[in-house]
Amino acid sequence: MSFEQIVFYGFSFMLIFSALMVILVKNSVKAALFLVLCFFASSALWLLLEAEFLAITLMLVYVGAVMVLFLFVVMMLDINYSALRQGYTKVLPIALMVALGFLLLLQWLVGNEHFGLNIIAEPQKHPADYSNVRELGRVLYTDYFYPFELAAVILLVAIIAAISLTFRGKRGRKSQDIDKQVEANKQNRLKVVKVEPVVSPKISDGEKA
């Protein structure tokens, strides 16, 4: 067994184990963390395929940003775990059927029939000066230019849609206007009032003592 094979089997085992733990572990925060480990392992497998750009982007986008926000949501949820586990036996047959159906579907879609060695050739090793990043950029901005731009527009629409769904206007919020705060100075905030000292009419010597 070569060094690469050991790395491959190590990370593959890690990927399958963490993927299983995502659905088996009871605590939802831990499940989300196992999903992060899952992404990490698959990113390492992509590195073995010499797809370093995709591998690092997976780390950057999914591990670094998406899962962080996901964890935020999961951590803030107040989940009653015992209520969640009620009706387990009742749902089990349906769940098993769905799982089986999904497994068959996956086998049909990404099985040997479409992705076998006779359909797609074994990946060859590239020379040391081969730049994955450069190749990907070239393909993205020439052959796949329109789909790429279209995907960008769709994502932009999704962003705007999400913001417009949650934005409720400025009414009733006590957010501060930073420009106004910066503009505040001595002239328009501070008023110096001159008060004439009040002189008491007459104090006799006896009162002073």
Binding site: E52, F53, I56, T57, M59, L60, V63, G64, A65, S131, N132, V133
Partner: peptide, 14 residues
């Protein structure tokens, strides 16, 4: 590595 810059960004985000 060729993607050194990306690697750095990925590491800081982890």
């Amino acid at each position: 590595i060729d993607a050194g810059l990306l690697f750095l960004l990925a590491m800081t985000s982890i």
